[in-house]
Design a protein around this nucleic acid. Structure first.
Lengths: 222, 222
DNA sequence: TTGGCTCTACCTATTTTTAGTGATTTTATT
DNA sequence: AATAAAATCACTAAAAATAGGTAGAGCCAA
């Protein structure tokens, strides 16, 4: 990359965050923040214009184009530019998607200076870097979630759980019936009971409940 | 848990490994190796007979019943007994399977004394522990997958994202229309276009897509 | 300025879901 | 063996979602 200093673009829609990060980075002699962006489109624009850029620090939540889309586009057009996601989101879907896209690092916004510096050092040596919490989250996403008797201690029977899972899979009553070897009338009844138990009015509510309680798993790409 | 010392069963088909591990563990005053097993069935047998057992150290490769099977059975019948996998295998399939089964920790056989002790301490405090190499392997397994086509590059307009989010919130077309200040016919059209773009047949598919891409956020309560 | 895309809106028709009510069989528990 | 809970099946009717088509207004880029 560029001779000695590491040239960095910071993208975040909160100016305060950018300022804070700049403060952290400028303490290191060979880190050089050369540009800032407040929305996704601006990021693309800047990267296109500056050619000696080494690293882009990306937030996920940004106007116009979110960090996921920006990351994807950058990795396609400028694969040599390192991407470090700095986000407040510690959700496996985001993390897995972004890793799949090929971002080089992911740390949380509450990371300290030390972790941020460490991340940048790693990335510039072609070593991916994922913060402690991030790896923990990914690992945890494999563990079976304990199904607490959620807020209102709603009790859902095993059969109803089956139906909930299949609803979340996008099957209609006839398909679910076929899969469970029962009449579709039965599934209709289960659905009715489920809706009434969970006090929701459609399958969207059922799916939300399913995900929140861990009944429905594997809603992520892998 | 048993009063002060941590009672451990070591299972491995190589006596040398068991001896080595015993040596490592016995240096710590409150670690107590109370049993050994050379095959999977023996492990189950011992756990059934000893009731004050705190931790089982499991190898994957074992005669009669491999570590994965043993872990599964133990977690079903004795969920309170911690399981630490100590294996030479650093392959994502094994790791993911075992995490899914619910093992509490996973370290490699070439781990030092320090990591082994750390792992046991974590587990006994109900904190899962996965060795550095293990987490690295899991993370890396995502990078190999290219999902550049599929979900991520389907182009959904901003308006469509709005509709997707509201569908995920459980609103019906009339409610969405009201919220967005347009006719419900318009929402019907959006829904139609969304279903056709995403190639799904109902709102369950839409919600799944929304979550996978990050369009839909805040689906978890805790 | 033409073409393409988005957002908007309406129409018809069919399929699916939701809602209410009732009932029988299976399974688990005491 | 009796009781309770869960799972099963059925019928009707209304509400909602899905599937197909058409089409105008606004915007942007080639």
């Amino acid at each position: 990359m560029s001779q000695d200093s590491i040239k960095i673009l910071i993208a975040d829609d909160h100016e305060m965050i950018i300022e804070g990060m700049k403060l952290m980075l400028n303490q290191v002699p060979d880190f050089e923040v050369v540009a800032e962006a407040y929305d996704g489109e601006k990021v693309i624009e800047i990267v296109k214009s500056i050619h000696e850029l080494d690293l882009v620090i990306l937030d996920i939540n940004m106007p116009k184009k979110d960090g996921i889309e920006v990351a994807k586009q950058l990795k396609e057009e400028f694969p040599e530019v390192k991407i470090l996601i700095v986000s407040m989101y510690n959700r496996p879907e985001f993390i897995k998607n972004l890793i799949a896209i090929g971002v080089d690092g992911y740390v949380l916004k509450n990371s300290g200076k030390k972790e941020l510096h460490q991340a940048i050092r790693s990335l510039m040596q072609n070593e991916p870097f994922y913060g402690k919490e991030i790896t923990k989250t990914v690992i945890k996403s494999y563990q079976k979630k304990k199904v607490f008797d959620s807020p209102l201690d709603i009790e859902v029977t095993e059969r109803e759980k089956d139906v909930i899972r299949l609803i979340a899979d996008g099957l209609n009553s006839a398909e679910i019936a076929e899969k469970l070897f029962v009449s579709s009338h039965t599934i209709d009844t289960h659905r009715k009971n489920i809706l009434s138990k969970l006090q929701v009015k459609n399958s969207a509510g059922v799916i939300r409940f399913g995900i929140q309680t861990g009944i429905v798993k594997g809603f992520d790409l892998f």
